[in-house]
Amino acid sequence: ICSSFFSLLKRCTWLPIILLLLDITPMLPVLEGVVMELQDCSLPLLRDIVPTDKEEVAFKDLDVAILVGSMPRKEGMERKDLLKANVNIFKSQGAALDKYAKKTVKVLVVGNPANTNCLITAKSAPSIPKENFSCLTRLDHNRARSQVAIRCGVPATQVTNVIIWGNHSSTQYPDVHHCKVNMSGSELACFDAVKDDAWLKGDFIATVQQRGAAVIKARKLSSAMSAAKAICDHMRDIWVGTPEGEFTSMGIYSTGNAYAVPEDLIYSFPVQIKDKTWKIVEGLAINDFSRSKMDATAAELMEERDTAVAFLGV
């Protein structure tokens, strides 16, 4: 993900960047190779690069923290073991953010299980507002948008307002009940544009939910360029806002006041962003089909949270 993300810095035209790159000590020689490649790109807005294995250097006065490193699930590893390993990683990084970063820092957690890792990070950084933390569901959002676009034979830019509800996992719910598709100059509801309700309620959802696994099966590696693009999309929207009338998907802290989602979860909602502040899109009609999907992914997140928090000791 990292190398692909850095290559996408070429797209940025709106602010200079100083990159602080944190990795474990044995990986510092590899990190130096990444630094050389970045230098060789002659990126116009890249002002400096600081590779380090020290949290006090990497997290000092950050405006943005993108946390991509997590413990991957290994063969024979139980889910609780995976959560325990990641609690240790993200507890440490949250504490470092709390100690060294600006209190206005925007934190994006990418490493999986992203929602629960994000929650642990936020709980470990109590002096930073919880609304400053988010996890990446923009990749799922982009996948859903693309699948609808392919089905309708239009560019992905013609598809707006898909929603990813819940967890960045196979329980996530890609919802197109509020999606619009621009076809031949006319804006249609997604169900009217696709004209295949069975596909939208079946194979479409499964394809988006399982897309990450499908990529791994095909290329023997996890998503790279698409994940990097989603990170850029996510951070760009935080900085410059979402287009008027459109919303995107982000895993954010639930206070229990929106769409009957339980509190104290990092849950993906539809949001609009302005002045670096997100706001949940309110008042969307939720039918019984959607409600059951939203509740199922919330139940998984509650189970993950309770297991992780037990390891955190709070």
Rank of each mutant, 00 (worst) to 15 (best):
C12Y: 11
R305K: 14
V107A: 12
S184H: 09
A149R: 08
S42D: 15
S268H: 07
S7W: 04
V281S: 13
G245D: 03
N161V: 07
H168G: 10
N132D: 06
F311A: 04
A149C: 07
V176R: 00
S127H: 12
R143G: 06
R138M: 14
C179M: 01
A310N: 05
G94T: 06
R47L: 13
M71H: 12
S70R: 01
L19K: 09
C135G: 11
I66A: 05
E131D: 15
A310I: 02
L83V: 15
L15N: 14
P262W: 01
E300N: 01
G256W: 02
C2P: 05
L136A: 11
K293H: 10
S290L: 06
I128G: 11
I231N: 00
E282Y: 07
L20A: 15
K123Q: 07
A285E: 14
L301I: 08
I17V: 15
S42E: 14
V162K: 03
I128A: 13
D233H: 06
P29K: 09
N115D: 11
Q39L: 12
Y173Q: 03
M77Q: 15
R73H: 01
N115F: 02
V68N: 00
E55L: 06
N167L: 05
I1D: 12
A260V: 00
K279N: 12
H234Y: 07
S170Y: 03
L200W: 10
G241D: 02
P72A: 05
T25R: 15
E56V: 07
Q272V: 06
L200G: 10
L62A: 06
R151Q: 13
K80Q: 09
A224G: 14
R211T: 04
N112L: 01
C2H: 10
S268T: 11
K91S: 08
L62K: 01
C12D: 14
D61Y: 01
A227T: 13
N182I: 08
D175Y: 05
T277R: 07
T25H: 12
C190G: 05
G166I: 04
I164F: 07
S4E: 04
I252H: 13
G76Q: 10
K276C: 08
T121A: 11
S268L: 11
K217F: 06
E32Y: 14
M27L: 10
V34P: 06
F247Y: 15
K293M: 07
V68R: 00
V64R: 13
V215S: 00
V87T: 03
V181C: 01
W239G: 03
G94P: 09
P72Y: 02
A214R: 09
V215R: 02
S92I: 05
S184I: 02
S249I: 15
K84A: 13
S290I: 00
P270W: 13
K123H: 06
L83A: 10
S170R: 10
S222N: 07
P16D: 15
